[in-house]
Amino acid sequence: MSRAGKFLRDNGLTLVFGLLFLGALVGQALTGHAMAIEERVENGFEPVSLGRYLTSSEFAVDVAENWQSEYLQFSLFIVATIWLVQRGSPESKRPSQIGRESDEKQIVGAHAEPDSPKWVRAGGWRTALFSRSLGLTMLAVFLVSWTAQYIAGRSAYNADQLVAFQDPASWAEYLFSADFWNRTLQNWQSEFLAIASMAILSVYLRQRGSPESKPVGAPHAVTEESG
């Protein structure tokens, strides 16, 4: 197999979903632009160009509100599964393994292997930071996305307020506004439902060949086993 072929095979999951993401984002941009033109024409305004729409707060808030909810889902799930379990789900650890686990099981410090990441063998703050790097990165992306939603959402909200000859909202007013929390909570509830559904449905249902599922013949009570 050629080097390019090996790269595509070894990174297929990331590449395919990356392309799906780009395709969906382009589709959102085009359909959102069409809707923006329709709304402006109906209200007696000039149509907006695609370039201007892509740099508008209207587009930014729609993108950011979806991103923040997805990364909130992952950051919460990563941390919650340290301490919480769902017996029989491949998404969960065994009940006997609740907690941060031993250095030996985590291959940390004296138990690090020759090809372990350098910071695992370094000890001190570097090992501590690396040990939490996935959750912290997901949390950071969530906070950045949520902040972007807040900033862009206020701008879009105030634009609508001015069109309706209403007073614009201050930063504090928008933070506690129904618009901000409606945008936020309508995404959060779907992410929480998805996690709960995946955790419990994977106890009783199977998908042959997927690591997100137990082996087809595995008993329902078996936990932390993928097929």
Rank of each mutant, 00 (worst) to 15 (best):
F176T: 14
G217D: 15
R3V: 12
Q161N: 06
V216D: 13
Q161A: 12
H33L: 09
W146T: 02
P47C: 10
P90E: 07
V203P: 00
I195F: 03
I107N: 02
F21E: 05
A148K: 12
R3C: 02
T14Q: 11
I98E: 01
L25H: 04
N182T: 15
L185V: 14
A140V: 13
L175I: 06
S89D: 04
Y157E: 13
W119S: 02
S177Y: 08
Q207A: 07
L201D: 01
D103A: 09
E38P: 00
Y150S: 01
A159S: 06
Q97T: 02
G44E: 14
S131D: 12
R206W: 08
A199P: 00
R100H: 02
E42D: 11
R52P: 00
P117H: 06
R132W: 12
K118R: 13
Q28N: 06
I151Y: 04
A4G: 02
Y174V: 04
V79T: 08
E225M: 09
H33R: 06
A60L: 14
G135A: 15
A196R: 04
V41C: 01
A80K: 05
L134E: 09
T14W: 14
T127L: 11
F176I: 13
R100E: 03
R132D: 01
S69M: 15
T184G: 01
S69G: 13
F130K: 05
P168I: 06
E191M: 13
V61A: 01
V144K: 03
V26I: 15
S170V: 08
M138P: 00
F130Y: 15
G123W: 13
M35E: 13
F17A: 02
P211H: 05
N43I: 04
L76W: 14
D103S: 07
F176Y: 07
L30E: 04
L19C: 03
G12H: 14
T147R: 11
Q186R: 15
Q161D: 08
